[in-house]
Amino acid sequence: MARQGTHTLDRINVAIDGPAGAGKSTVARMVAQELSYIYVDTGAMYRAVTWYMLREGIKPEDHDNVLQTVRNMVIELIPGKDTQSVMINGEDATPHIRTLQVSGMVSQYAKVECIRTRLSQLQREMALAKGVVMDGRDIGTTVLPDAEVKIFMTATVEERALRRYKELKDKEQVSLKQLENDIAQRDFLDQNREISPLRRAEDSVLLDTTSMDILQVVETIVSHCRSYARGERNHL
């Protein structure tokens, strides 16, 4: 994976966490582009593993089968111009990972210890050379606890459901109310799982994006990263 140089600031790692539908992936990708950093979409990695397990008929409670499968799994992130592809054993999982079926099951697989251990290891390896923007639910607390900049993005359930509805309405038959219920349930599962639950790191910056557009969010985070690189420890 080629790393682009940057002349605007020394390389640091940026961790962006938050609940489902907060817009983390889109924002993190754009922040990485602004800083000429590498973007790592950890949520897509968990979704890709979920899709693969579902396709193979491997249930999350089938621990032996899950462990054997994830150990032998080759997972690659391939950067593109506007998106990032996730490859599982050489197969592009990207077109399949945003379906309602995957969205409804990803929390069940994400709480399986061997899956989290394997993916967290891969994610840490990706960040060793610095200059990475990584988004997920436990980046600042578990995967990259030493990241120089940590952002916790959030928004109301209603706003997050509306954003997801706009994204899915032309692809799947889904109601706004259903999405609100799904996101609320996803929040509950993510916050209450035993392994690496969703929580805000104590040294993270809280960013409520309910009334912000994407460009405003990106500009705010990029500004914070550049302030950090100049030695300013300001808060948003």
Rank of each mutant, 00 (worst) to 15 (best):
E167L: 04
R199L: 11
P197G: 00
A184I: 01
G21D: 11
L54M: 14
D187F: 09
I88A: 05
N234Y: 12
T6C: 06
I214F: 11
D213W: 06
Y109P: 04
E61L: 07
S36E: 11
N72W: 02
R163F: 03
A28F: 09
I12E: 03
Q4A: 14
T42M: 07
M30I: 07
P197R: 01
G104R: 13
V40Y: 05
D208N: 09
M212Q: 12
M1V: 15
K169P: 15
S175E: 13
P197D: 01
A28Q: 09
I97R: 01
V74P: 06
L54C: 03
V70T: 02
V31Y: 04
A32H: 10
N234Q: 13
D82Q: 14
H235E: 12
L236E: 12
K81R: 15
A20V: 01
D82I: 13
E219H: 14
A229N: 04
N72D: 03
I214A: 13
S227P: 06
T26D: 10
D213I: 02
E148T: 13
E34P: 04
V70Q: 01
L35Q: 09
K171H: 02
V143A: 04
I195P: 00
E202A: 13
I16P: 08
K169L: 00
R137M: 03
Y46T: 09
I75R: 05
Q178F: 14
Y228N: 06
A44L: 08
R160W: 10
Y39F: 14
G136C: 02
V66W: 08
T210S: 08
G140F: 01
W51G: 06
D213S: 05
T42F: 11
S175G: 10
Q84C: 02
L215Q: 15
A93P: 00
M87E: 02
I139V: 01
M134V: 10
G23K: 12
E159Q: 08
S211R: 15
E202F: 09
R98G: 06
Y52R: 10
R47N: 07
I88T: 08
E158N: 04
R200S: 10
V112R: 08
L189H: 14
D17F: 03
V40S: 01
Q185H: 12
G131L: 05
D10T: 09
R47A: 12
L54R: 11
V14P: 01
K111D: 07
V149K: 11
N13G: 10
M87I: 13
G80C: 13
N72A: 07
L176I: 14
R230V: 03
I115G: 13
L236H: 13
R118P: 03
E202I: 04
R55G: 15
D138K: 02
Y165P: 15
